[in-house]
């Protein structure tokens, strides 16, 4: 049976990817082994900086505020960008890719707020 023209390239493609993955797995294990002498306890000491109740209270509040405010901003942004993207895409489907990238940019704003909140909560 004749193989179709694409399957002849499937095998080398899969092989190359497997080789690449295994190379990097070994690299990572090598890297982490080289630094495994230091224990995880380092992370603990660098995290807890204060047990001041005032700081804890304001820390919770600010984490919530960070997420809330960034989400509102992201909501407004995605709403505007999304509907404009829809409008442009309906007439020119080739702009769909670009348009969705703008939506992704707008959505990342909420993620930034989340990261700030996590960092705050990590330190209290």
């Amino acid at each position: 049976m004749k193989f179709s023209f694409v399957s002849s390239k499937l095998l080398p493609a899969v092989l190359i990817s497997l080789v690449t993955i295994s190379l990097f797995m070994t690299f990572l294990i090598f890297v982490s082994k080289a630094y495994s002498t230091d224990t995880i306890s380092h992370t603990e000491t660098t995290s807890r900086q204060s047990t001041n109740p005032e700081a804890i209270k304001w820390g919770f509040f600010s984490a919530a505020l960070a997420i809330g405010a960034s989400t509102i901003g992201a909501a407004i942004a995605v709403g505007l960008v999304g509907s404009s993207a829809m409008g442009a895409m309906s007439e020119r489907p080739e702009m769909a890719g670009r348009a969705l990238i703008f939506v992704g940019l707008a959505e990342g704003i909420a993620i930034y707020g989340l990261i700030v909140a996590i960092m705050i909560l990590g330190k209290i």
Binding site: T20, F24, F27, L28, V31, S32, Y35
Partner: peptide, 26 residues
């Protein structure tokens, strides 16, 4: 592609180093 994959896994390696030692050292 392959370059992107290398870069991505390199960044992950850097992050693992940070989690393991607490500093960005490589």
């Amino acid at each position: 592609g392959i370059m992107g994959l290398i870069f991505y896994w390199g960044c992950i390696g850097l992050a693992i180093i940070y989690l393991a030692t607490g500093k960005f050292q490589a």
